[in-house]
Design a protein around this nucleic acid. Structure first.
Length: 927
RNA sequence: GCCUAGGUGGUGGAACUGGUAGACACGCAGGACUUAAAAUCCUGUUCCUGUUAAAGGAGUGCGGGUUCGAUUCCCGCCCUAGGUACCA
């Protein structure tokens, strides 16, 4: 029988599914290993050839780990709540659940074709009530938790209530809103129930707060920052304005420091770690208070350069700062109001675009410099952001370029504060000099100055060392239909959780998926949807990241109805050992998941500080478009003639995308081209060397560019094993690369060669029981060693090459020995599972047992050669080959080399200074 | 601007801790088998000089440095990709 990938692959895929081959063992003393892929959103377009790249890599690793004796968990599921299905529902009225179901079916078929070793009995879908029940349950845990800075972890809200009952706010160190009240235990007890709830909300990890959002009135919804482009909505191009709304938020800022520290304990790619670090944005500095006698308050600013405090010549507030009204003098009021109105209209993007123009207004008010007591003007300007720090800065024009430009523009003083500072052209932030014009820190160095200033400010109670984070709390609500309902109802305007045994709170059916006429979210259309028939439910749903922030736990115990996963399952599987996915989730999913994981740990549900021990980013596979060149006539109109790439410069042409699937190695199939579109039916071609060569370009893979390659088509022609090997062969896993089918023949040839090696001319399996020769063992053990090393360091592309070399060598030796094949196919199995299963059973092994065979042991003895020749250089220049016996020590080798006539000739009588050995071999002789 | 990764033949890429640069594959050229095609097999393929060959020279973005020896380490610069930005 010839290598028939089609029947062979179907057969084994069915066998694996029927026999549950990839379900982890229930009771075992094997060590566990958890390999996870980022689960996909099942879009309507199906999978293209780029999607499975990471899945193939994780599958290779899973199968390898299984062969290495691990109990492997390797599950797959769907992140099935999402915008496209909802958008489709709005247009067609089709329920998103229906579209989602159809798409999932398609995804599953495509995934099955590739022969993955997923345990499908553990599949999860975030949009199913049995799943989102637990997403809602986790929301409840967050609502019922506060962050205790004293224990540095989240605790049940009850511990806070107890504290209030006993001591009031005395001694509470919590992460909370800024406007918390201070009260005694008695005062707390005297609060009404509603006052208590209102106050507790300021501490909860899931809380309701008024926040500024991108509101798109035309779409009736809030948009995320990346859904707003140049001030209009990405979808539809409607205007977007800044609006204050009550929004659910997650107090992720409480975890800023732990999220940062945790990065040092996990094995993630450096760029990704760096992105999270920047996102969290820790900056170490000080907060300083500038008294404003006029209103009897102190303006607090944050600075990373407290040492420059004597260079302060004015204070700038964000236009939104809450005291602007209070501070503004009557003389300045009109100007201030006009400026504030102008900035309010600007979106954040406009503000960024305007970054280069200096603007601002004097409030008329003055603050006292805390150290000099001098008056400093208070200005407002939009280069100060309300959301960062305190929304106010101390301006040091000599040290900060923005302050410098502002001072120049408005004629404010610029104070030189260091003897090395050069401030004629621009601000100079250097820390090298000694301070001048700086009171008691004159003459000090940077480090001394920082300490001295902070000490003085602390004594005066006007400042202290402080750490600031760029990260904000995460908004946790969308005015959409297709998401998890928030398990909350409102009584007297305050949120309360529904009872736990009422979960899941089902997503109600509605007639249309648009916002209501009164501007409520779509859930407002579910008229009689009320808690206990009377209380209004929360109408916004959870954001896309909710369901994906804990899904790895659900795979551990997907059918559990009593808990998100049982204690035993969580204790056994612990955390994900290897996680593979794209870097686009760096500051979204991967950060939120770490956050929820830490909360659940703090609340005692598991013991892992970090959810994903090792992470690999697979590079994006881009499209590679092909072009034909249509010749234009005198008037610049397209003719029916197409010219080959090499000759196109002799004509006036226009490039047209052509379907990559009718192009082979960049040569156009002209017959298929004629059938490609009706108006090409009579196409004529100007060929070079009898062929039509197409142009190429790397672009995003998309239907409109005719460069989408469907894995199903590749599998139909070459088989899943070829696809898997080829995707790995394409280049390093982590690197972005364009898909190019050109080289796939080479991989396909390799598999056929392997097959033919163990089949005779008439296609019968034929294997010899003879003892393998030295050379055969060498070929085998080289590959055993190489593949093991490669897989451990995720260098899958070089393994594929090594397999080709191995089979070439065995072919040359005409080796069809049983002992060689048996071990070779185990090493190949993770990459090409189907063909190896087939050969495994042809060898007479029970079907399906290869997955649990043991990985062949590498024996270095097989790589040792007794006779070999290798090059030796003299003074680094290549000179000669020396034949040598190996089993000698360095001294003996040295002696032989020096007596060798060739060597003597090369040395030409010069004295030997040094002989360089590498791994027991002489590499170089220095004379 | 800042941060991170990278720059090697016609192409994808290999060279793991400094040790024969270009493995392996594609493509291309030539050949064998065949009536022919497909499939398969063999040979060559970094560039330059050299009639073939023998041989020699150059060569891993550019310029320096360390070293017996540098794609690999160090310094300066150029370019590409990704991230990020009035963050005080």
């Amino acid at each position: 029988m010839e290598y028939n990938h089609q029947s062979l692959e179907k057969k084994w895929q069915k066998f694996w599914a029927d026999n549950g081959t990839f379900m982890p063992e229930k009771t075992t003393d094997k060590p566990k290993y958890y390999v996870l892929d980022m689960f996909p959103y099942p879009s309507g377009a199906g999978l293209h050839v780029g999607h499975p790249l990471g899945y193939i890599a994780s599958d290779i690793f899973s199968r390898y780990k299984r062969l290495k004796g691990y109990n492997v968990l390797h599950p797959m599921g769907y992140d099935s709540f999402g915008l496209p299905a909802e958008q489709y529902a709005i247009q067609t009225g089709q329920h998103p659940a229906v579209t989602t179901e159809v798409n999932i079916k398609r995804y599953r078929e495509q995934l099955d074709n590739i022969g993955f070793s997923y345990d499908w009995s553990r599949e999860v879908r975030t949009s199913e009530p049995q799943y989102y029940k637990w997403t809602q349950w986790i929301f409840m845990q967050l609502f019922n938790a506060w962050y205790n800075n004293r224990t540095d972890k989240a605790e049940s809200i009850n511990t806070l209530i107890d504290h209030f009952n006993n001591f009031g706010t005395q001694g509470v160190e919590a992460v909370s809103d800024e406007d918390i009240l201070t009260f005694s235990a008695d005062e707390w007890k005297a609060f009404t129930e509603e006052d208590k709830q209102r106050e507790l909300l300021k501490y909860r990890l899931a809380y309701l707060r008024e926040s500024t959002v991108n509101w798109c009135a035309a779409l009736g919804t809030v948009l995320a920052n990346d859904e707003v482009i140049n001030g209009v909505s990405e979808r539809g191009g409607y205007p977007v304005e800044q609006k204050k709304m009550m929004q659910w938020s997650m107090r992720i800022t409480a975890y800023a420091d732990r999220l940062l520290r945790g990065l040092e304990t996990i094995d993630w790619p450096e760029p990704l770690v760096e992105m999270q670090r920047n996102w969290i944005g820790k900056s170490v500095g000080a907060s300083v208070k500038f008294p404003v006698p006029q209103i009897d308050k102190e303006i607090e600013v944050f600075t990373t350069r407290v040492d420059t405090i004597f260079g302060v010549s004015f204070i700038v507030l964000a236009p939104e700062h809450e005291w602007v009204d209070l501070l503004t003098t009557d003389a300045q009021r009109a100007e201030v109001d006009a400026y504030r109105e102008k900035t309010a209209k600007k979106s954040e993007l406009d503000r960024m675009a305007d970054a280069k123009t200096v603007s601002g207004v004097f409030t008329g008010a003055y603050a006292k410099h805390p150290l000099t007591g001098e008056d400093v003007q208070i200005w407002i300007a939009d280069y100060v952001l309300a959301g960062y720090g305190t929304g106010a800065v101390m301006a040091v024009p000599s040290g900060d370029q923005r302050d410098y430009l502002f001072a120049k523009h408005f004629g404010l003083p610029i104070i030189r504060i260091s003897d090395t500072q050069q401030i004629e052209e621009a601000a100079d932030p250097n820390k090298d000099g000694r301070y001048i014009n700086s009171g008691f820190i004159n003459g000090l160095t940077y480090d001394e100055a920082v300490a001295a200033v902070i000490k003085r400010l602390e004594e005066m109670k006007l400042g202290k060392a402080k750490v600031n984070f760029r990260m904000r709390d995460a908004i946790f609500g969308r005015q959409r239909y297709w998401g998890e309902p928030v398990p909350v109802y409102f009584k007297n305007g305050l949120p309360y959780l529904i009872e736990e045994d009422e979960l899941p709170l089902m997503l109600p059916e509605i007639d249309k998926y648009l916002p209501t006429e009164t501007g409520e979210p779509p859930l407002g259309r579910a008229g009689d949807w009320k808690y206990q028939g009377q209380y209004e439910y929360e109408l916004s749903t959870m954001p896309g990241w909710a369901g994906s922030s804990w899904y790895w736990f659900r795979y551990m115990d997907p059918k559990n109805t009593e808990a998100f996963a049982s204690k035993e399952a969580v204790d056994y599987w612990k955390a994900v050992d290897l996680y593979i996915g794209g870097s686009e989730h760096a500051t979204g999913h991967l950060l939120y998941s770490r956050f929820w994981n830490k909360v659940l740990k703090d609340l005692g549900y598991h013991n892992e500080e970090e959810p994903f021990k090792k992470l690999i980013n697979q590079g994006m596979i881009q499209g590679r478009s092909n072009f034909v060149y249509r010749v234009l006539d005198e008037e610049g109109k397209g003719t029916n003639t197409f010219v080959s790439l090499g000759l196109k410069d002799q004509y006036k042409t226009i490039p047209l995308h052509v379907d990559v699937n009718i192009v082979h190695n960049d040569i156009l199939d002209t017959e298929k081209f004629k059938a490609f579109r009706p108006d090409f039916a009579n196409a004529e071609f100007v060929l070079e060397n009898g062929r039509y060569v197409c142009g190429t370009e790397v672009e995003k893979m998309s239907k409109s560019k005719f460069n989408v390659v469907n894995p199903d088509d590749i599998i139909a022609t070459y088989g899943a094993d070829t696809l898997r090997l080829y995707e790995m062969f394409l280049g390093p896993l982590e690197q972005a690369k364009p898909w190019n089918t050109n080289g796939i023949e080479g991989v396909y040839k390799f598999l056929r060669k392997l097959w033919r090696l163990f089949h005779d001319a008439s296609g019968n399996f034929i294997v010899s029981d003879e003892e393998p020769t030295k050379a055969e063992y060498k070929a085998l053990h080289k590959i055993i060693k190489k593949v093991e090393e490669d897989i451990e360091r995720f260098s899958f592309n070089t393994s594929v090459s090594a397999f080709m070399i191995c089979v070439n060598e065995l072919s040359e030796l005409k080796c069809n020995k049983r002992k060689i094949l048996q071990e070779l196919i185990i090493t190949l199995h993770p990459y090409a599972p189907h063909i190896t299963e087939e050969l495994w059973s042809l060898l007479g092994n029970p079907a399906g047992t290869i997955s649990y065979a043991s990985y062949p042991a590498f024996n270095p003895a097989h790589l040792v050669e007794s006779e070999f020749a290798y090059p030796v250089s003299v003074n680094g220049k290549m000179k000669m080959n020396l034949p040598l016996a190996l089993d000698l020590d360095a001294k003996a080798v040295e002696a032989i080399v020096l007596e060798n006539n060739d060597v003597q000739r090369f040395l030409d009588g010069k004295a030997v200074k040094k002989i360089i050995f590498v791994k027991g071999k002489i590499i170089n002789i220095v004379v």
